[in-house]
Design a protein around this nucleic acid. Structure first.
Length: 235
DNA sequence: GCGACAG
DNA sequence: ATCTTGTCGC
């Protein structure tokens, strides 16, 4: 029986799944977002053969989509990747990174699923609930649910259905490129989630906040340097 | 039993 | 996620 450490307790895989089902009931699917001035991208990468988890949070001004702050947190990896339990592996480092921020984000765009999860509790829900910050899940691959054929044209959208419910939307952010799977994380409606994701796009497959977090999490030297220069310049 | 399976 | 160069296409 495999067990792992989470929030100071040792959990079995079965207990983790039960906890997700309970916490899913705490998720707020209504809009509690107000005056969104800053939107943050959240992503995680690994170092040292996976023994170190590296979380990055990039805060952007929502109107200009310019970087205004970022943090990186490195923690020892607490458990392996298990489909459906990704958030237990990534959340600790993400929450640590969020607490290091100077500029507080009004909304989080997380790399991964939100409610489009078998137990309706993907990493975006987990991070949103524990941080209290409204959040959205933006995944590059599907975890669950089905959907109609998506036109190859940019801006095409189809509903992601599971168990008779619309759990998210599949969005083609660029013509001919694999789509994004958008679902709510916490304290926001699916309609608003789609609005914020689309407004955060700037010609690339991924929303700008996540593009930054992606580069910072995967520790691409060029990007870390670029981000650092932008910040010291804004002081 | 078999296939699916975020990052 | 991560290991990795060049290459096809808009």
């Amino acid at each position: 029986m495999f067990t792992f450490e989470s929030q100071g307790r040792c959990l079995t895989v079965a207990e983790a799944r039960e906890w997700q089902q309970e916490m899913a009931g705490q998720i707020v699917c209504r809009d509690e977002v107000r005056d969104v001035h800053t939107v943050a991208g959240v992503d995680v990468g690994f170092e040292e053969n996976g023994s170190v988890t590296r979380a990055a949070v990039a805060v952007l001004d929502f109107l200009t989509l310019q970087l205004v702050d970022f943090t990186i947190a490195r923690l020892p990896t607490c458990m392996p990747y298990i489909p459906g339990l990704l958030s237990f592996r990534e959340s600790p480092a993400v929450l640590a990174a969020l607490q290091q921020l100077t500029v507080q984000p009004d909304l989080l765009l997380c790399d991964g699923q939100g409610r489009a999860h078998p137990r309706r509790f993907g990493v975006a829900c987990h991070v949103g609930l524990l941080s209290g910050i409204p959040s959205i899940g933006v995944a590059k691959q599907r975890l669950c649910g089905e959907h109609d054929t998506l036109p190859v044209e940019k801006n095409s959208i189809v509903a992601l259905m599971d168990d008779q419910q619309t759990i998210g939307y599949v969005l083609r952010s660029r013509t001919g490129i694999k789509p994004l799977y958008v679902s709510i994380g916490h304290r926001i409606s699916l309609t608003s989630a789609m609005y914020f994701v689309q407004e955060s796009l700037a010609g690339y497959k991924l929303p700008e906040p996540i593009r930054w977090a992606d580069g910072l999490a995967s520790n691409r030297g060029k990007i870390v340097e670029k981000a650092s220069r932008i910040l010291e310049r804004s002081i």
